[in-house]
Computed example of a mutant assay.
Amino acid sequence: MTLESQLKAGIRAFDVRCRLVNNECAVYHQFVSQEINLDEVLQICESFLKMYPSEVVLLRVKDKENSPINSTQSFEDVFVGRYWNKYRTLLWQPKDIDLSLSPPIPIGDVRGKVVILQYFKSSRLYSLPFKHTETTQSHWTQFSRATLYLKWTIIREHLLKTNDSSSIYFDPGPFGLELSFYTNWISGGLTVEPFFVASGHIDWGTDGRRHTCYKEYSFMTEEDSKKVFPEFPRSPLKKNSLGLHYRNVYCEGTNIMTYEKLKAERFRFVGIIFADFPGCGLIQAIIDSVNH
């Protein structure tokens, strides 16, 4: 989906990873250009917020997504000179944050604004700092399809931890007592395809083939069966050439597992969830959890 489509679908938080190219912040994912820069991202957000001024958009801005190309300025200088000064009326400007309030930043202060979650080194804070702390789950590396269930258990445990928490976590930092956000990356990759992690399919597309991660035979006890990928889906009972009955255990994508978990249980708080290829069901399940 385009950025405009994602905003209209209900997504309000974006992971914007930047690489300096010709002294501009180009948006990249590892070595792959997303064919958009930070200026265009902010223009799209500005147009959306003019139409929907009660909304808020969060942008986690990260630098050093690979080495700069033909750039002589620091990331901070480019960020301030090209974007921070230009979009001062759009970007939320941090004021004195009253830590005695709950929440310490009233929602009315950020409506109609883009809030930068700052994940780059700088001489000062331009917005809210983003830090990888105990409130962050970012287990991204998937070395094989067999590790998908481990990825899901990490996501699930962080969902439960987030639900049991307060929405804001205070953490000491170089600029004083800082706020940390509960954040859950349900995407993954490395040596497996990101679409496989999201969907559990080994072919691209909604109806792609599933990956069989285990065969569950009928002579196994129910207790033994529950030990192996208990939350992954099973096929109908089949019979092999030896006459043994079995079920295929299929990998299930993290997007689908997260959607089903949110629908099955009444979550009061899920924090920020970053996902690849989010569908309308997952987006709505996250929105519904906020409405609880």
Rank of each mutant, 00 (worst) to 15 (best):
R145W: 04
A146T: 04
A146K: 14
A146D: 12
A146W: 10
T147M: 09
T147H: 07
T147Y: 05
L148C: 06
Y149R: 15
Y149E: 05
Y149I: 08
Y149Q: 11
L150G: 06
L150Y: 08
K151S: 10
K151I: 00
W152F: 12
T153H: 03
T153D: 00
I154M: 08
I154C: 08
I155M: 01
I155L: 01
R156L: 02
R156W: 01
R156V: 00
R156I: 00
E157N: 12
E157P: 02
E157F: 03
E157V: 01
H158L: 01
L159H: 09
L159M: 08
L160P: 00
K161T: 14
K161Y: 06
K161D: 04
K161A: 12
K161F: 06
T162M: 04
T162Q: 08
T162I: 13
N163L: 01
N163M: 02
N163E: 02
D164F: 03
D164H: 12
S165R: 04
S165W: 05
S165L: 06
S165A: 15
S167A: 14
S167G: 11
I168K: 05
F170S: 03
F170P: 01
F170C: 06
D171T: 13
D171K: 10
P172R: 06
P172K: 09
P172H: 07
P172M: 07
P172E: 11
P172T: 11
G173C: 04
G173V: 08
G173K: 13
G173I: 07
G173Y: 10
P174M: 04
P174Y: 02
P174R: 14
F175I: 00
F175W: 14
G176E: 09
L177I: 11
L177P: 14
E178K: 07
L179Q: 13
